[in-house]
């Protein structure tokens, strides 16, 4: 529906009159497995990105997830408290681990 409104408004004027309504992107639920530390993942990770980012990586090693969490802190400046790091890495490497 939004698409129709958006395109129609644009088509009316060569200079693209103001888009009369906000663009709305769909809510998509990427459900993570239940597990110890999931609440910490929800609190710390979802400010910046959907859980699709986690699921997209597939099952990976403890070292992989540890590096990812530190990349979020060091490169992207995610304000993750030091005491939350082992909880988050523990959850990811259990729920989405490959046994390594």
């Amino acid at each position: 529906m939004k698409k129709i409104i958006f395109s129609t408004v644009l088509a009316l004027s060569p200079l693209m009159a103001q888009v009369s309504q906000e663009i709305i992107s769909p809510d998509v639920t990427y459900t993570l497995k239940e597990g110890k530390g999931l609440d910490s993942v929800q609190a710390n990770c979802s400010m910046c990105h959907s859980f699709g980012y986690i699921l997209n990586q597939g099952k990976q090693s403890h070292m992989f997830w540890d590096e990812k969490v530190h990349k979020m802190i060091n490169a992207f400046k995610a304000p993750i408290a030091p005491e939350d790091i082992p909880t988050i890495v523990g959850y990811l490497s259990t729920a989405y681990g490959n046994g390594k």
Binding site: K2, I23, S25, P26, H49, S50
Partner: peptide
């Protein structure tokens, strides 16, 4: 359906 898109492989919405 994302705005102006047909269904696609949706790795993330945000």
């Amino acid at each position: 359906n994302f705005p102006e898109k047909r269904p696609m492989i949706t790795h993330s919405n945000r």
